[in-house]
Computed example of a mutant assay.
Amino acid sequence: MAKVTGLEGVVAGETEIGLVDGEKGHLVYRGYWAKELAVSKSYEEVAYLLWNGRLPDAEELAQLKAQMAEERVIPEYLCRMLDLFPASVPLMLVLQSAVAALGDKENTTWPPTLKQAVRLTAVLPAIIAYRARRLQGLEPLDSLPELGHAANYLYLLTGKLPEEAHVKALSAYLILCMEHGMNASTFAGRVVLSTESDMCAAVCGAIGAMKGPLHGGAPYEVISMLEDIGTVERAEPWLRNALDNGTKLMGFGHRIYKTKDPRAEALQIATLEMIGKDASFDLALHVEATAIALLEEYKPGRRLFTNVEFYAAAILKALQLSPEIFTPTFTAGRIVGWTAHILEQAANNRIFRPQSTYIGPMPESEVVS
Score class of each variant (00 low, 15 high):
A2P: 12
V10H: 09
I17C: 08
I17P: 01
G22T: 08
R30C: 03
E36N: 07
E45I: 03
L49Y: 00
W51D: 01
L55A: 03
P56A: 06
E59A: 14
L61G: 05
A62G: 06
A66M: 10
A66H: 01
A69V: 13
E71F: 13
E71V: 07
R72W: 10
Y77W: 15
L78V: 08
M81H: 11
L84W: 06
P86F: 04
V89K: 13
M92C: 13
S97C: 11
G103Q: 10
K105I: 09
E106I: 07
N107G: 15
T108D: 11
K115Q: 09
A117I: 11
L120H: 13
V123K: 07
P125W: 14
P125H: 13
A126D: 10
I127H: 03
I128V: 15
Y130T: 09
R134K: 15
Q136T: 02
L144H: 08
P145L: 10
E146A: 02
L147Q: 14
A151V: 15
Y155D: 03
Y155V: 12
K160W: 05
E164I: 01
V167H: 10
K168A: 02
S171W: 05
I175Q: 05
L176H: 07
E179G: 02
M182R: 03
N183H: 08
R190P: 00
V191E: 06
D198H: 12
C200S: 13
C200A: 14
A201S: 15
A201D: 10
A202H: 05
A202C: 11
C204P: 05
C204W: 08
A206G: 13
G208V: 04
A209L: 09
G217I: 05
Y220H: 13
M225L: 14
E227S: 06
T231A: 12
W238Q: 14
A242T: 07
N245G: 14
T247N: 00
T259F: 04
R263Q: 09
A266Y: 00
A266Q: 05
L267N: 01
T271W: 03
L272Y: 11
A279I: 07
L283V: 04
L285E: 04
H286P: 00
H286D: 00
A289D: 12
A291L: 08
A293Y: 08
E297K: 06
Y298V: 01
N307H: 02
V308M: 11
I315K: 01
L316P: 13
L321E: 08
I325C: 05
T327K: 05
W338M: 14
T339W: 12
A340I: 10
A340E: 04
E344M: 01
N348C: 08
N349D: 09
I351N: 04
I351Y: 02
R353E: 10
R353H: 07
P354R: 10
Q355T: 10
P361C: 15
M362L: 14
E366C: 05
V367P: 12
